[in-house]
């Protein structure tokens, strides 16, 4: 059945309806959390939050606040659904991913409510694409209960300094060990792979270090396969904040500046890996 090329009039009642002049403001952020096929979307008056989880251990959230959109309206208090993130990204980038100067894809998004598909209307250069993506029942999401009062150690680094390190992590190591301390080595990333161990040390007075608040020495280990996808968010961001709480839960918050200079956030939460024997330090 042919889909009508006309987006619905604004008067109709949609649970969620939004317009964006440049679809890349949404697609690039979603790519930063695209490590599983499915995502849960939550729309509230503040904006859109897209969550991806894996192994009950890691959660990534992309926040696109309402102010980024040209129009953003949510009828109820909140609207939530599950959707294929791969399909959503293919649709948002239907006209290609390269950004030619001066061209952008305009987007209109409509969601009627529970059980209905998500409708996307994309337009570039007079050509219109209409997408209808089926939605599912949203999953229950993890709650890491991570709040700023429980933070033990926190540093803020310029992303430039970490990008290469994350891209070149020894993936033969099962874990990524993170040490944060008021004393040497201050901030250390370690892997224990087939070759041997590797340590990456950032001194507290490095030019890359924007903030350093470490009160206790903590060493925690995380499954490297779960953290590796965060490299995408790191690549897009200009700054990253790294925080741990008393139980060793890790919070990574990435500050991303879009083409128009607006700021958006992506965050990753990860549980420490309990099931490993003491590795050499």
């Amino acid at each position: 059945m042919p889909l009508s090329a006309q987006p619905p009039a604004s008067g109709e009642r949609y649970a969620l309806s939004a317009s964006l002049d440049n679809a890349r403001h949404l697609s690039s952020l979603l790519r930063a959390v695209h490590f599983q096929d499915h995502a849960t979307c939550l729309a509230t008056a503040s904006g859109l939050r897209v969550t991806v989880e894996d192994a009950k251990c890691i959660q990534a959230n992309a926040f696109i606040q309402a102010e980024i959109f040209q129009e953003f309206s949510v009828q109820e208090e909140s609207v939530m659904f599950r959707i294929s993130l791969s399909v959503l990204l293919d649709c948002l980038t239907i006209f290609g991913t390269s950004s030619l100067p001066g061209t952008s894809t305009a987007l209109r998004m409509c969601y009627r409510g529970y059980g209905y598909p998500l409708m996307l209307f994309l337009e570039e250069g007079g050509v219109v694409t209409v997408c209808k993506i089926n939605t599912q029942e949203p999953d229950e999401l993890l709650d890491f209960d991570f709040c700023s009062t429980k933070v033990v150690n926190k540093i803020i680094l310029q992303s430039e300094g970490l990008r290469e390190a994350f891209a070149e992590l020894d993936m033969t190591s099962e874990v990524l060990q993170i040490t944060m301390s008021p004393d040497k080595p201050y901030f250390r990333l370690s892997t224990f792979g087939n070759a041997g161990s590797a340590h990456l040390d950032y001194p507290r007075d490095s030019d890359l270090m924007e903030a350093f608040h470490c009160s206790q020495t903590q060493t925690n280990r995380y499954k490297i396969s779960l953290l590796k996808p965060s490299t995408k968010a790191l690549a897009l961001s200009c700054k990253v904040s790294i925080r741990t709480d008393a139980q060793g839960f890790l919070s990574l918050q990435y500050m991303i500046r879009n083409e128009d200079g607006q700021i958006c956030f992506v965050e990753y939460y990860c549980c420490p890996d309990e099931n490993i024997t003491e590795a050499e330090l």
Binding site: G196, D201, Y202, D205, S206
Partner: peptide, 11 residues
């Protein structure tokens, strides 16, 4: 650069 040190201990 930036005072960063990478140490590899190879077997």
């Amino acid at each position: 650069k930036y005072g960063v040190t990478k140490t590899h201990n190879l077997a």
